[in-house]
């Protein structure tokens, strides 16, 4: 996919914009992109699916403590467990990331559909990429720790 790098750059730009403008947290890219992050431990992931001209998903994977810090900053309230507020905040970050990816990929908006955001969380879980998909995982650093933004798109 010729424009995958371009989309990845846009994803970095969008993540920084979301955290700077709306979450109100300092953020920086934390090293080179990865092609795997292995098993996620005590984490929460927000996902938005893309269907239509492009198929795949955008996800944000956050260790619990980072998710708590982000939710506190986003909503101005203290949280210490994964509750509806944390799931909603993480889902909304995934939703905005998905929207930015769609804007980059779509001609005029109707050729790609975005799913509503969903979240999963637990003590230990894996994301298994499709064999026919291109995948990139970008590490970021915020004051609460490190987290990852993932883009997976099926190869045409």
């Amino acid at each position: 996919m010729e424009n995958f790098q371009q989309i990845s750059d846009k994803l970095i730009e969008a993540t920084v914009e979301i955290f700077t403008a709306m979450v109100m947290m300092e953020i920086s890219v934390n090293g080179e992109p990865l092609d795997n992050i292995g098993t996620l431990k005590n984490s929460i992931s927000g996902l938005v699916g893309l269907a239509g001209a492009y198929k795949g998903f955008v996800a944000v994977h956050l260790p619990e403590n980072v998710a708590f810090a982000i939710t506190s900053s986003f909503l101005g309230l203290d949280v210490d467990e994964i509750n509806e507020d944390v799931q909603d905040a993480v889902g909304e970050i995934a939703n905005m990331l998905g929207g930015n990816v769609k804007t980059e990929l779509s001609d005029a908006g109707r050729d790609i559909a975005l799913s509503l955001p969903s979240t999963i969380y637990g003590e230990s879980y894996d994301f298994r990429p499709s064999d026919e998909a291109e995948r990139i995982i970008i590490p970021f650093k915020v004051p609460g720790g490190e987290f990852f933004v993932e883009l997976e798109l099926e190869i045409e």
Binding site: N95, M96, G98, G99, N100, K102, T103, S106, D107, A108, G109, R110, L114
Partner: peptide
């Protein structure tokens, strides 16, 4: 107020 920016939908 949306993530949508495409000309079709807007």
């Amino acid at each position: 107020i949306s993530t949508e920016t495409g000309d079709d939908i807007i």
